[in-house]
Nucleic acid binder design. Structure first.
Lengths: 185, 185
DNA sequence: ATACTCATGTAAGAAGTTACATGATTAC
DNA sequence: GTAATCATGTAACTTCTTACATGAGTAT
């Protein structure tokens, strides 16, 4: 039984401590979602598959009358996670509607390109703010023994910085082109 | 009848001249595939849907005994493309297995993080080489009146540059951590 | 001849999102 | 009491990839 890409996200999220499906979703949303998202529609069915494959183990731990299943890695799950970590990364997919719109901008009204760049900058500024908000937590976790989430988070922050600066440069360049075109007309 | 995301890629690829489905795939593979890919399994069915919706028009232009259908934008298709270009970009999805592996690296053997960073750098170097190869063509197209594909291509090149430099920095940092850990042990 | 490119298409399936349904607990 | 949070799950759907099938034209 093959583990799906998101299955490995789940295994990874259980590497330090057991969690509920709900808990996994919370952590994903505050960490990996910027480069790998996961919805309940994936998490719950996948947890069952992983349990059937013997890679995780669920234990019922109700709180009051509220049903609750906490999952932990089995030794086999820990091994499978480690094996996967040693494999060459393969998936790197991007679907970037903004770049697409900029690429095709000549087919739209003249303000298309600038608008698209502006929207892009706003997007990255919002993303940057979100990342800065969660950084302290990752930094604390780093002092606690696992430096990698913080390394990845800083990658996210720095790449946002870069993207924002690119937008600023692009705006300048596009402005010049506008001037040229206006002169030519 | 709603146009799918990839439908807009097709409309966009027809903005300057008519093309076959095969031709669209070629252009995508040499331009947008780095931020929006498309397979035959999407292109051919989608072309039919777009034709049914009146956004493109197919004309049979066999070459010898070889069947061949060339599609062009209809006025309605051009309008729909332009309308879409004016909308705020929404989709920006990333699925980055390398960052995931780095994030979880503490659960793997000690060399995991460095290996993952190395693989990442190789990946971006290969991508950079591909982009540099197609750049002259985009640059020529820019002189021909449409500057935007070249702008986007240079975004790709510069972001690869940035990512490669990040990998180099990360390797240094991870090396230091290794040293620290070895001293502590 | 044979390999490559041009060209069109489908079927099966993987992967993931959205929307919905349900209900207990906790904080204000 | 009521809103937010914790918690689990499914069904329908969209999107996309992979693998396969087919066949003509072109270059060596």
């Amino acid at each position: 039984m093959a583990v799906s890409p998101t299955g490995y996200v789940i295994l990874g999220m259980l590497r330090h401590e057991p969690r509920t499906g709900y808990g996994i979703k919370q952590v994903v949303d505050h960490s990996t979602r910027f480069f790998w998202a996961a919805s309940y529609g994936q998490i719950y069915p996948e947890l069952r598959k992983l349990a059937k494959a013997g890679l995780v183990e669920g234990e019922s731990q109700p709180q009051g009358g509220r049903k609750r299943t906490v999952y932990r890695l089995t030794p086999a799950g820990r091994e499978e996670l480690s094996r996967w970590l040693g494999e060459e990364p393969e998936v790197l997919e991007v679907r970037d509607e903004g770049l697409l719109k900029l690429f095709f901008a000549s087919a739209g009204p003249p303000e298309t390109a600038l608008q698209t760049v502006d929207a892009r900058q706003r997007f990255y500024e919002a993303k940057l703010a979100q990342l800065r908000e969660i950084e302290p937590r990752a930094s604390a976790a780093a002092d606690d023994g696992d430096p990698y989430p913080d390394v990845v988070l800083r990658y996210g922050i720095e790449s946002c910085d870069w993207a924002i600066r690119w937008c600023e440069r692009a705006r300048e360049e596009l402005g010049k082109q506008d001037t040229k075109r206006r002169r030519a007309a």
